[in-house]
Computed example of a mutant assay.
Amino acid sequence: MGSAVVLEEKWPVLGRHQQAAEWLRVWTDLGRAPRTIDAYARGLAEYLLVCERDGINPVTANKLQVAAFVKELTTRPSRRGPNVVVLDSGVGLANATLQQRLVPVRLFYDYLIEEGLRDSNPVGRGRYTPGRKFGGHQRGLVPRLKKLPWIPTEQQWLDLLEVVRDEPIRNRVMLAFAYDAALRREELCSLRTDDLDPAHRTLRVRAETTKTRRERIVPYLAATGVLLSGYLAHRATISRTRGPLFLSESRRNYGQPLTLWTWSKVIRRVALAADLPRFSTHTTRHLCLTDLARMGWELHTIASFAGHGSTESTLTYIHLSGRDLAEKLNRGMQQIHSWRIDMLTRANSTMPEATS
C-alpha cells in the first residue's frame, strides 16, 4: 500500500483514476519488482494525462484514440534533441521505448476486461491465431523492430580502456565484472560482499536482482580478481561492514550503496570521453556474450551463463559482425571452394581451343 501511495504522489494523475490506482496496487501486492512497478506507473500516467488533455474517458477509449496516443509518442520531439543516440533523428521514441510505454496501457485494459468494465482491449498484441486468414498472424498495434545490438570494434574497445585506465579502482573493477560475468546493470550494482567467492573466483547473482528471477553462479578471470583485491582494500577505508559491495564516495552519499543511476552516469562520462556515444551499461554484456559465441561456446551454455530463460533470448544478444560471419564462411567453404576451383581449372585445361 505504501508503494502505491508514493507512486500516486509522484504521478498525481494515477490518484484521479480509481481503476488505475487499483490496477497498480494489484501488481504491487503481487510482489513485482519496484523498478517494474515504477515503469508501469510512468507509462500509464503518461497515457492518462493525454486522455485528460483530450477529454477522453480512458475506461471507454477505443482503438482509434489509443492509436492517436501512439502517433504522438512517435512524433513528439525528443528531450535529448541532437544528443539522442538511439534514434536516427531527434524525434519520437525508440521502438523499444515505445513498446515499454504501451505494455502498462495494454495490461491496464486487460485488468478492466477481467473486472467486467470492458469487452475488448484496444491495445492489440501480436500473436498467432489458428484459422485466421492471410497467414494466421495478428499484428500488434505497433510493429516490433529487432535491431542488432551495437558492440565496439577492437580499436574502439582499446580507446575505451585508455580512458578507463585513469578511473578510480571501483569503476575499473565494476567494468571488469560487467564484461567478465556479462552482468546486467542491476545485477552489478546489487552485488554484496557475501556474493563473492575469491577462492574459486566466482560470484553469486541473486535471483531477486535478475530480470528472470533465476539465481546463477558465474566465474571471473584472475586479472579481475587482482583488481577486486585492490578494491576490497580500498573499500575497507570507506566501510568495514559487510553488505553492498560497491559504495558511493561522493560527499553527499559517502559510504552508501552505489545507485544504478550513478553507474549509468559513470559509463556515460567514460563513453563520451572515448568518443563512443553508443556505449552503454549493457554494451559489456552484449560484447561478452558475442565473444563467447566467437570462441565456439554452445548456445545453451551461453544462455545459462547469461541467465536467460530461453536460447531465443540469447540469440538477440549475440551479434556476430559481417567480418565474423565472412571468416566463418571462408573457413567452412575453403575445402569445397578449393575442390570446385581445382575441378574448374582442370576442365579448362582439357577443353578444346575455340575456333573462329
Rank of each mutant, 00 (worst) to 15 (best):
E8W: 03
Y254N: 06
Y40Q: 01
K147V: 04
T314H: 00
G2H: 15
D324N: 00
Y317M: 03
S250Y: 12
F305T: 01
H137L: 13
G135E: 12
R331C: 10
L329P: 05
G243T: 06
G92T: 00
L14R: 03
P77W: 08
L247K: 04
K265Q: 12
L227K: 00
L320I: 02
R323H: 13
A303I: 01
A41R: 00
G81H: 13
G296E: 03
V66Q: 05
L64M: 12
L64T: 14
G309D: 08
R170L: 03
R32W: 11
A176E: 09
R184M: 12
R213N: 15
R25C: 08
A223H: 15
D159R: 03
I56Y: 09
L64W: 14
G296T: 06
E353A: 14
S78V: 02
S250L: 06
R214A: 07
S310D: 04
L64Y: 15
E52S: 05
V173L: 10
W27Q: 01
E187M: 00
G43H: 04
S356K: 12
D38S: 11
S321K: 02
R127C: 15
G136R: 07
R204I: 15
M174E: 03
D291F: 01
D88I: 01
L160K: 04
N253L: 15
G135L: 11
L112G: 04
L160E: 06
P277A: 01
V86N: 12
Q65L: 04
T224S: 08
A274Y: 09
R42F: 13
R278F: 09
G332P: 08
V50L: 09
G225P: 11
T290R: 06
L287T: 10
S304L: 12
L145Y: 13
S239C: 14
R165V: 13
T311H: 00
R125T: 12
Q19P: 08
G55I: 10
R268Q: 15
I113A: 01
T311V: 03
R252C: 02
N253A: 13
A68P: 06
Q19R: 02
R268L: 10
R165Q: 15
L175R: 00
W27K: 03
S313K: 04
V163G: 07
I37E: 12
T350C: 03
E8H: 05
V6G: 01
K63G: 09
W157H: 02
A181L: 07
G2S: 15
R127S: 11
G243A: 07
C288K: 12
V70Q: 05
E215W: 13
K146P: 08
R16D: 14
T129H: 14
R185N: 15
N253I: 06
R101T: 00
L287M: 09
R184T: 10
R185D: 10
S338T: 01
G126M: 11
L320Q: 02
H17K: 08
R216W: 13
I341N: 09
T262Q: 10
S190C: 09
P244F: 05
K265L: 06
I217L: 15
P257Q: 03
V164M: 10
P277H: 04
R278H: 14
E298I: 01
R79K: 14
E114T: 07
F108Q: 02
G322S: 09
R346E: 13
E115T: 02
R204Y: 10
S313H: 07
P198I: 05
H200D: 10
G322K: 07
